[in-house]
Design a protein around this nucleic acid. Structure first.
Lengths: 237, 237
DNA sequence: TGAGTGCATCTTGTCTACAAAAAGTAGACT
DNA sequence: AGTCTACTTTTTGTAGACAAGATGCACTCA
């Protein structure tokens, strides 16, 4: 156990396994590790002061959530993205996001709202301070929390999967030089606030309108890639 | 179908790990292992002739797909079901099933259709021979294959999660003595055939109508025959 | 007698070492 | 000279043993 110092974020600690999970997620979401990259088990185990078995367990878990892809006798690779996946994303995202947001509006408690506002505060700060990774990270946390508030075990899996690529798309198409894009980030932040208000008021219809507008904003930013319109499938029977 | 009861193929084999995965899924889907049950690592490792690490890896993977639930320093338990999860299921299932089936209708190739028909043949056989587990298993395989044909990475996670409980609901509310339920199973089988036809004709609209009717049939069976008997689902806490 | 505490036991979590499979490389043969 | 093959190297997969945490029981003490 010679060099635990060389690792910046984690190398020692009570729960190094949680650190591994957390850090890997963060790196994949912010594309510090690019889609398609190979993850070396020994390198990770050394960096986080773990042996390979717990690292392998974490890999399996991440694979189950769609962060990475595993193949027998081959190295783990970060889930890849393609032009096709971009189309697939904007085809399905509205349906899932709308469903999650509507359900959240129906179920949210006062504590849920408080939790959302806390995350949104961090998101707003990241936007205003031009912290790109922070913005991506807290945007992910925001929508994931909405999904948790929705409190429906069947919608969360797809929402989780969508959020992974939502984060990465947000990084891929970010152009810091573009002033209009910056303005639209502030608009997105305001939309978050409005979504929280709608959820707090248990106004599912308004929440749906807002979340659709929220996604449209993202889609417009990458209109050059001809992202398709979402499927119009209503929730409920 | 291949009936994996106690331990016929366990112990030896070229890919005991695949056998473990496969068998565990099957047991959970058919409720040979009840929701809420604990899974003992050493028992499984002994049954399948593996050591604990690969068993633990398999558990992580199954947890990621929603078959089991893991908690730190506590035994793995089969994902529980409740009255609430029933409501949640029928709230979300139409949306996801419809989306998957519509997409499948748009993307299906001749080979896809052939694969579907093969699965449906097994399903029909299971229905006609009153093989309850086989029926549940091949129904799961059928809808999962439809989801794979849809070829959209973002809809599959929720579909997978839904199918787990779809299978278990199908077993919970099955009443072999009820003649009308038997007739409705045959109706479900005919619906499968029609769904395949619609997909083969790339008729998304018709496929949607059919899949909605298919789900309504399941829902009616529950309401009619299960509810009167008192909702005796003692599954999981 | 009841409640709290310490111990025994079992289960989960982790580590080191070994086995197997794939990839890359050098050599020999055609 | 090119290609096939055998070997070396690297990486993944597995095994068995050890450590840590949790649970249940018995025992002690008020």
């Amino acid at each position: 156990m010679a060099n635990n110092q060389s690792s910046p974020e984690a190398g020692v600690g009570p729960d190094r396994k949680a650190a591994l999970n957390h850090t890997l997620r963060h790196r994949i979401l912010t594309m510090q590790i690019a889609p398609g990259s190979v993850l070396d088990e020994v390198a990770l185990s050394e960096e986080f002061g773990l042996s390979r078995p717990p690292v392998r367990e974490a890999m399996r878990q991440l694979a189950g959530e769609g962060f990475i892809e595993l193949e027998a006798n081959r190295p783990a690779r970060v889930t890849s993205m393609s032009y096709q996946s971009l189309r697939d994303f904007f085809l399905i995202a509205p349906m899932i996001y709308v469903a999650a947001t509507r359900l959240a509006a129906e179920h949210a408690s006062k504590a849920d709202i408080a939790g959302l506002r806390e995350i949104q505060d961090s998101f707003r700060d990241a936007v205003h301070s031009n912290d790109v990774d922070g913005r991506v990270f807290y945007n992910d946390k925001f929508h994931l929390r909405v999904g948790e508030i929705a409190n429906n075990a069947y919608i969360l899996p797809s929402l989780r999967r969508l959020l992974i690529d939502h984060a990465r798309i947000g990084k891929i198409f970010y152009r810091p030089s573009n002033a209009r894009m910056l303005e639209e980030l502030h608009e997105a932040s305001r939309q978050h606030d409005e979504i929280i208000d709608a959820i707090a008021n248990h106004d599912a219809d308004r929440a749906e309108v807002l979340i659709r507008a929220h996604l449209d904003l993202s889609r417009k930013n990458m209109a050059m890639y001809a992202a398709p319109e979402g499927m119009a499938i209503s929730l409920g029977v």
